[in-house]
Amino acid sequence: MGREANTEPKYDLLALVTLDKSRILGGKQLTLLAKDEEEQKTMTADIAKALKADVVKMNSGDYLVIRV
């Protein structure tokens, strides 16, 4: 995506919010395990608001909080 989707090609992956414990593999970003989908959405929105970041919903159901 990079230069194609937005003009500033710097991306920071800030958080991953998942429902699947096996996908928590570590890394620089904050990774959180939610109980259910509702909690996952709320957690994602809270983090995104606090960090003034954007949210990507992945096809796997996980949410990424990224800053462009």
């Binding site: 949210v55 990507v56 949410y63």
Partner: peptide
């Protein structure tokens, strides 16, 4: 297709 950055309902 433009972007998938609209991950939340609000966005």
């Amino acid at each position: 297709y433009v972007t998938n950055l609209l991950g939340t309902e609000n966005a």
